[in-house]
């Protein structure tokens, strides 16, 4: 099994959008032969220290962060529509980052 890559997905309540992104990214990366695990968080709980434990940050909206993350930030909101043409470019970006770390 390839090396596990860990990412965060965050949304306002940490209940709906972040979990949808988590499920979608984990499933698509598994399909592409990668081992990606995503944790869902509330945006307000995402800080520099937390992000340092992860390999990437999947965001739903362009949220202003009070710090510059050291990990790649991936604009993943388009996945929410569940339209393949919108989701594929996001998955491709995630996969590029994953391949770079494996």
């Amino acid at each position: 099994m390839p090396k596990q890559i860990k990412m965060i997905a965050a949304c306002g309540a940490g209940v709906n959008s972040s979990h949808q992104i988590k499920d979608a990214v984990e499933a698509e990366m598994k399909k592409r032969g990668h081992n990606v695990s995503v944790d869902a968080y509330m945006v307000k709980d995402v800080n520099e220290e937390l992000l340092n434990k992860y390999d990437g940050y999947l965001t739903i909206a362009k949220t202003d962060l009070s710090f510059t993350p050291k990990v790649p930030v991936i604009d993943a909101g388009a996945i929410l529509y569940r339209i393949p043409a919108m989701a594929t470019p996001v998955y491709d970006t995630v996969e590029k980052i994953v391949k770079g770390l494996e």
């Binding site: 209940v15 709906n16 979990h19 949808q20 499920d23 979608a24 529509y81 569940r82």
Partner: peptide, 22 residues
């Protein structure tokens, strides 16, 4: 409006709404 007290438990509610709309 989504009332969700069990985000992990079952199929994602938002995904089901988006599938319904799509």
């Amino acid at each position: 409006m989504i009332l969700n007290n069990d985000p992990e438990g079952q199929a994602n509610i938002l995904a089901q709404i988006m599938d319904f709309l799509g």
